[in-house]
Write a protein that binds this DNA or RNA. Sequence first.
DNA 1: CGCCCCTTTGAACATTTTCAACGAACGTGG
DNA 2: CCACGTTCGTTGAAAATGTTCAAAGGGGCG
Lengths: 237, 237
Amino acid sequence: MDMSVKKTGINAAWRGLANCRGCGIRESALFADLTESDFNLIHLPIDEMTVAPGAALYHVGDEPAALYTVRGGLVKLVQYLPNGGQRIVRLLRTGDTAGLEAALGEPYRHTAIAIHPVLTCRIPRAVIQRLSEETQHLHQQLMRRWHQAVERADAFLVELGTGSARARVARLFLTLVDGHGECDFFGREDVGAVLGITTETASRAVAELKRQGLLNELRPNRFQCNVDALRALADGP
Amino acid sequence: MDMSVKKTGINAAWRGLANCRGCGIRESALFADLTESDFNLIHLPIDEMTVAPGAALYHVGDEPAALYTVRGGLVKLVQYLPNGGQRIVRLLRTGDTAGLEAALGEPYRHTAIAIHPVLTCRIPRAVIQRLSEETQHLHQQLMRRWHQAVERADAFLVELGTGSARARVARLFLTLVDGHGECDFFGREDVGAVLGITTETASRAVAELKRQGLLNELRPNRFQCNVDALRALADGP
DNA sequence: CGCCCCTTTGAACATTTTCAACGAACGTGG
DNA sequence: CCACGTTCGTTGAAAATGTTCAAAGGGGCG
């Protein structure tokens, strides 16, 4: 287990104020079914920003000033172990929400770090609280988000925490593939932290899948996956 | 992994209608800060019932007709794997809530089974939905419950899914001890399903802790724990 | 070009799983 | 009341799996 804590330099760029009304992922986003009048209640700015790989959206223990909607890229939620190691407890993708606890005024339980370049909307806690008092819609949405978070957490435990290293890696790829059987992957250390195995074991498993032709590395960490074969592995040993 | 699915005969006894106003665990329960007028909105009966070990509160896929407040005992939330095995994704104790998703009208994601004799209040979905429309209090409470569920899920992953078998078992005991260093334990098969290890490995780990004097078995599956020594083990190997 | 970081690989070692067997506790039915 | 079958916890021994420590190769960046 890696005892060193990575320094993640602030590396986020402000992209401008978000136009929620015209948001491309609005139907899947937190503000899914807000009405026009709801939007008029927002007076604090919702910033749209990019976050570079390795940079953090927020750190555990930070003042919970905002929550984040992921509009693109991949975010890891990290929890640090008493012995200094770390474990990734969830991966967030387009449409997911990071830092939901901020809406309750609770401290952040994780550190959220971009794995791939991330585009995100930063929604101040005050906006959420204001809206959630005024409109049922948002309340519903928030509840659904929580529900989703629990489901994800359970899936993480069951799918990625059970079975042999090979099977776990196979399942990880299956959770990441797009509609064309391709997927962006990431560093072996993070793979290990997701699956609860060492970096070396993760590397061996990925390397072997490549050798066996279940994965074809188009370019560094971009894979063409043999989805059917992976699925067979996922259940087996 | 055990391929057989246990038959859990219905074995719940009705204890009468609950008196929420005078509930002993009310400050920690779902209805924590309902006002007198809120209670008047309840017209459906909230049943108080006991559930015998091995019996289910509800099964995955059941019509989500109610949620359950655990007033005593120990409940496991089980998810079944594609290969027929099972994994326990959470343990619920006094004050916890099972089947929260019913409040959203979502299907149950788990099967909830009593490990120790359980005393529970069954709250019909309609009651929750009615109250949650009428009163902010309950909305808040529900949100907090979800938050709690996510925290539990993360803790399960990080604390019970990381480290050697011995360390995991030690941490499991630490999550179960009461104020006097005693704790009720449960079957090795369930221990394995919680920790993601085999029944035999679970048995070996517990047996060794007994031999080393970190655990003293007062009577079958009732232990006096050397909390400090367990804590040392929990971080180490 | 040289340095650094990441991935990969090897080999010895540790842990866990698997398969098998035994004994105690329990409840049933004779 | 006792014999029997069952379940559960335990243990042994061999095999499989994962970890650890160490080192080599590759690619990108200054």
